[in-house]
Design a protein around this nucleic acid. Structure first.
Lengths: 131, 131
DNA sequence: AATAGTGGTTCCCGTTACTGGAAGGTCAAG
DNA sequence: CTTGACCTTCCAGTAACGGGAACCACTATT
């Protein structure tokens, strides 16, 4: 398979696939013409990567996950640990965003949003952050 | 005031303050010795920036917000519009993260997390993404 | 055979918002 | 006079690609 086909199947842009090769996540063969020649295992890995990335794992996480995936003697505890850690990161981001949302929501509600310059939002922003 | 003082007052690292000068967000004076000489207005701007950044606004947003802040003839509608847009971005991120959280949470629950290799998480990741 | 069009290839720059570190000038204190 | 804290500029690196240039390969048509 050429990169275009693999891109279609995996849903990943060709650019991304080349990048993944560059950083060593995949290692497709090469044809006589210099084109990358992807095998099923490459496609499988890319599918794995696409899914993991869509769940917010970093490339580094993906590297670890793939290593575990290919290690037949892995312990599922190691996988669970990694994913649990990721889940905690997500929870933290959710908290931060929720807090921001809360504050911004109040500010938006307090702003008249008309043609006058008076604006509680700007007033708030010019206040020193507490803490 | 020197950069150290300003850093302490604003809570922003000196590096960040220099960066903000470099990209034109502030324009402190210079003393005879080449040191930056910050005035109250500079400190005020930095406070504004620190607060806006902590609410998740991009640097570009901050630039717009500062311009509005300094424009005495602004319409509060313009401010509200910008902030509302930011709020929508946040809501979208919240949705994405919540969806991830949901999926990951299920996966973690399904994984035994022991010393055996069998792992529903890896099994799921190797499945083709639907859609 | 020439040409056009599509799809490969590499390489390099740009993105966001900084952070780290090197090499060196300045200032106050002992 | 030296030490140490503070300041300066400049350069490189981060995460995960995306855009675009310049160029080669393959297929189909004229």
């Amino acid at each position: 398979m050429n990169i275009g086909q693999v891109s279609d199947f995996s849903g990943l842009p060709a650019k991304t696939i080349r990048y993944y090769e560059e950083i060593g996540l995949i290692a497709p063969m090469r044809g006589e013409n210099g084109y990358r020649a992807f095998r099923d295992t490459d496609l499988h890995k890319l599918t794995f990567l696409a899914r993991a990335r869509s769940l917010g794992f970093t490339i580094d996480d993906c590297r670890s996950l793939m290593a575990l995936y290919e290690d037949q003697s892995r312990a599922s505890a190691d996988v669970k640990k990694l994913v649990t850690q990721h889940l905690q990161n997500i929870d933290q981001k959710l908290e931060e965003l929720t807090q921001m949302r809360q504050t911004l929501s109040h500010l938006v509600d307090a702003c008249a949003g008309d043609d006058r310059p008076e604006c509680p939002i700007l007033k708030d922003l010019s206040k020193k952050t507490i803490g």
